[in-house]
Design a protein around this nucleic acid. Structure first.
Lengths: 191, 191
DNA sequence: ACCTGAACACCGTTCAAGT
DNA sequence: ACCTGAACACCGTTCAAGT
């Protein structure tokens, strides 16, 4: 008998590993190519094993992905005034969405649940404590602003565009314009 | 032999009928249940017949749906000043998206093509002719605003909410807040 | 030109079975 | 508790064939 290198006991499956692999597939190949079977392959496991960790199957997976890029928290440490807190939260939200464009359609569309819903409520409380009048209105406006900005920014990167340097210039513009619009929104919120 | 009512020659398939039926399914049952076979059933035709009108298959169908809710034109008649035109265009865009929430994820996510892309360019030209400085910047900001507003508005209607009257109040709020934010955005655009 | 029928590869999910 | 294998109903798409 030939001495084979000992087959390592595979890393056990976990919700976190499943979500990471799913995000990798969605970002790299698109959401339509994210299938339970492909996801199983990526995790070196039969597709059916996933159901043990996500009993509601693919629907639960989609929910979890939306939650993952959408449940954003920013600690109130070192942030004085609701303006700074709002700004920090908006930036963190934008970054989280841009990091995983493959699931953006889920993030923009699925009603917030679980930790995402909790994060929204917490953010409203923080802004209220920091002295903002209608905090839940403000959170809605901020979420809308982040969603809209990221949507057109990601759309634009999918535009037909042969010139790669123009492409890069646009990305830098994205941040500049985001900050500019954010300033305007926040000044508008003080009334 | 029994006299049967004469079988009417079926209405011939057309791109328009296909898109209408597809929107109906997506809005009523969700995008995930929009399949070629179900679409064929709704049109009283075998699924394969659809490929004659949409040679690129389901991808082409998705593109067409996004285009349909996204290619918005407003004639410049009776609209003086770029502010009024921008306002009219934003309202029309919001209405088109709210009418078909089932394909919102496509509309927010697919890069504009065909008539949708043309409508964007035309809108930029109109605003420029009406005296706006950086018109393409403005169109981007307006699109982002409409996308974000509609996204949170539609998300909210999917929220867990036992009280139906609260639900209805929210919808009315949606329009009020949209107009309010739109005013702020447009004043911000004049610089 | 327009549609059908059969076929193929792939998909989500269930269930009994293995360890 | 965690994973596999076989099975089922359904899916997108092709292709040859019908009219």
């Amino acid at each position: 008998m030939i001495d084979m290198p000992a087959k390592r006991p595979p890393v056990p499956l976990s919700l976190e590993r499943i979500i990471d692999a799913a995000l990798h597939i969605a970002d790299g190949q698109g959401l339509r190519r994210l299938t339970m079977r492909r996801l199983g392959d990526a995790l070196q496991v039969e597709a059916m094993a996933i159901y043990h960790h996500l009993p509601r199957g693919k629907d639960a997976l989609m929910d979890a992905l939306a939650e993952h890029v959408t449940a954003v928290q920013v600690g109130p440490e070192g942030l004085d005034g609701w303006q700074d807190r709002a700004r920090a939260w908006a930036r963190a939200s934008r970054a989280a969405l841009l990091e995983h464009p493959g699931v953006l359609s889920l993030a923009l569309t699925k009603p917030p649940k679980g930790s995402a819903l909790i994060a929204i409520r917490e953010q409203a409380e923080q802004l209220q404590e920091a002295g903002l009048g209608d905090a839940s209105e403000a959170v809605r406006a901020l979420r809308a602003y982040v969603f809209g900005s990221v949507a057109v920014e990601v759309q634009q990167s999918g535009w037909a565009d042969p010139d790669a340097t123009v492409q890069h210039a646009r990305t830098a513009d994205g941040e500049r314009e985001f900050e500019h619009g954010l300033d305007a929104l926040i000044t508008g919120l003080e009334r």
